[in-house]
Structures are given as structure tokens and as C-alpha cells.
């Protein structure tokens, strides 16, 4: 780990406009600092800034940036009204990591691309302009949607996939004031500038994640991986679906493990609406989802895997 200056903030305002790296749970930042993938000169510890409350927000919920993943998943309101979020959080990492990891930190979690995580390779995300060694390397876990020649990394998290399906928003304090970004717009695709994972600007701090009013229907987070726990997703599907008189009345979906961001595609839900569930319908939805999918060889299997996982989840959500 490179040497750095450490300071503690007592209120969020100290972080606004700061050029320091913000240290919350540390489970990702310190990991990457040990690898010297991250080499900040200044680190600002924001754990004591009080952003760790979960509050009602009209019919919705406002979850403070520093609420731990565990606390969020254990919250009675989350479990009752947004169970998809609890499921997704609990599918990720380990209990120890979830106790330390925060909501905002988890949104900012960086890719697990092994070329990104070692400093002796070419990686446009770590070192803009250097190239991408993953393209012809070990890329079993890499993206099949929205990737570019610059970067085929995936966003590795689970929580944000659920938040995308739930239409959550990210509340950000910046030197010019407070702004909100739809979670679906928060993470970026790599085209052009692979080193930027999301739309956060220097000097900004995430203060909260807000959930809109609960949506009725079955909520399912399905994560596929060869190890049954403590492993990143090969593919994941977040689904909220409501049936009415044997037809699909409402559906919200997001996908993990496929792209540089939690993947959403409005055409998939549109194809489902008003339809009777059937394997053929699920296939049609998958066709839309995967129409632009591109494998790199080792990760070609993600295309049929995404198709079949979507079918499993839709079947599960629509069965009597």
C-alpha cells in the first residue's frame, strides 16, 4: 500500500469538494489500495458523518449512504416492502463483509476483472490508454452486453442490480449543490472512457439511496454461480412481477454479471406485459435481452446462461 494522509470527517460537508478518496467500509477501497490499483495521496474517513440512518421518504425509503449492507438487509421495512433489495444484498459477499460494506461504497465497488486488479497488465480502466489484456486473456467472467474494445469488465455487485430493478435513485452532494441520479443512469458503459465506472464527479459524495413507493408483485433475485456462496455472479436476474388474471400485469427487471453496469432493457418488460406466461414468451424476452450479446470465447456460455436464468426466474414468478 502506498503511503497516504489520513483524516477523519465529522460531517458529510467536509467531503464535498475534497480531493481525498472517501473511505467508508473500506472492504473494496482497502483491498485495491493493498494491490496499489488505488493509490490515493489523501484518504478521508467518512464513517463518522452520520449518514447511517434509514428513514421513511413519503411512501418510499431513504437509506443513508453509510448504512451497512447488513443493516439494510435486516431492516424490517426493507424486508417487508422491498424484499428484492434484501435478497440481493444477502446474495453478495459474506456476513463479515456485509457488516462493514456500506450502501454507497457498494455502489462504487469496482470490477473484479483480474487484469484490472494487477498492476503489471494493460488495463484501460486502471491506466487509460494502455489497452485491454482481458480481450484475449482469461475472460470467463466478463461482459457480453455493452462492452467495447476498450473494456469488457463487468460491474460485480448484486445490490445495485436490485436497486436498478426497483427504480431507485442516488442522492449526491456536490460543490454546486444536491443532485439526484436514477440508479439506472448511475453506472456507465465503458465506451470511450473505461476508467470511469459511474457518473460521480470529483468532489462529490453520495449521501443516500432513495427507493420509490413499494411495487406490488413477486420479487426475486436469482444469482447463478458455481460456488453456492461467497462468490461473484456469473449471471444474476432481479425481477419484480405482478400477475393479473393469468397475464403479466407489471414487470421490472435488471441483470447482473452481463455488463459494465447493472443491465436494464425496457424492451424485455414491454414484451412481457399483458402476455400469458409460457416458455415461448420467456424465450422471446431473452431474444430481446440478448440481441446484441457478444461473447469473447470463454464467456460465450453467459448468453445461454442468461437466457435460461431469465426463463427460470420468469417461470418462478408466474407460476400459480
Amino acid at each position: 500500500m502506498r503511503a497516504f494522509d489520513y483524516a477523519r470527517a465529522t460531517e458529510a460537508a467536509e467531503a464535498v469538494g475534497s480531493d481525498a478518496r472517501l473511505l467508508a467500509g473500506g472492504t473494496n477501497l482497502l483491498d485495491l489500495m493493498k494491490l496499489e490499483v488505488e493509490t490515493p495521496a489523501r484518504v478521508l474517513d467518512i464513517n463518522r458523518t452520520g449518514l447511517d440512518r434509514i428513514e421513511a421518504d413519503g411512501e418510499g425509503l431513504r437509506i443513508g449512504a453509510l448504512v451497512s449492507n447488513s443493516a439494510c438487509a435486516a431492516d424490517a421495512r426493507v424486508r417487508a416492502d422491498w424484499p428484492l433489495l434484501a435478497q440481493a444484498i444477502l446474495a453478495g459477499a459474506s456476513p463479515q463483509l456485509r457488516n462493514k460494506a456500506t450502501m454507497a461504497g457498494n455502489l462504487c465497488q469496482r470490477t473484479r476483472c483480474q487484469y484490472f486488479m494487477r498492476t503489471d497488465t494493460r488495463c484501460n480502466k486502471r491506466e487509460p490508454g494502455s489497452g485491454c489484456d482481458a480481450l484475449e486473456g482469461v475472460n470467463r467472467n466478463h461482459a457480453i452486453l455493452g462492452a467495447s474494445e476498450a473494456c469488457i469488465a463487468t460491474y460485480p455487485g448484486d445490490m445495485a442490480v436490485a436497486l436498478a430493478a426497483l427504480d431507485a435513485w442516488v442522492e449526491i452532494d456536490s460543490p454546486s449543490g444536491r443532485r439526484s441520479v436514477a440508479l439506472r443512469e448511475f453506472h456507465r458503459l465503458p465506451n470511450g472512457i473505461a476508467h470511469r465506472d459511474n457518473v460521480l464527479e470529483p468532489g462529490e459524495i453520495i449521501t443516500a439511496i432513495t427507493l420509490p413507493a413499494p411495487v406490488r408483485g413477486r420479487q426475486i433475485y436469482r444469482k447463478v454461480r458455481e460456488r453456492s456462496s461467497y462468490a461473484f455472479a456469473l449471471v444474476s436476474v432481479a425481477l419484480v412481477l405482478r400477475m393479473d388474471a393469468g397475464r403479466i400485469a407489471a414487470a421490472q427487471l435488471a441483470f447482473g454479471g452481463l455488463a459494465h453496469k447493472p443491465w436494464t432493457d425496457s424492451r424485455v418488460a414491454e414484451a412481457l406485459l399483458g402476455q400469458k406466461p409460457s416458455p415461448a414468451l420467456f424465450d422471446k424476452a431473452a431474444d430481446l435481452l440478448l440481441s446484441g450479446a457478444q461473447g469473447q470465447g470463454e464467456n460465450d456460455f453467459k448468453i445461454p446462461l442468461a437466457r435460461r436464468t431469465l426463463a427460470a426466474v420468469l417461470h418462478d414468478a408466474t407460476k400459480e
Partner: peptide, 14 residues
């Protein structure tokens, strides 16, 4: 490439 315990998957309890 998978030189750590996050990427080399020994069985977990579950």
C-alpha cells in the same frame, strides 16, 4: 490469473 481465494474457488461451508 486467479491467484487468490476470491477467484480460485475452494468449497465454502454451504
Amino acid at each position: 490469473m486467479n491467484h487468490d481465494l476470491a477467484e480460485y474457488h475452494i468449497p465454502v461451508n454451504r
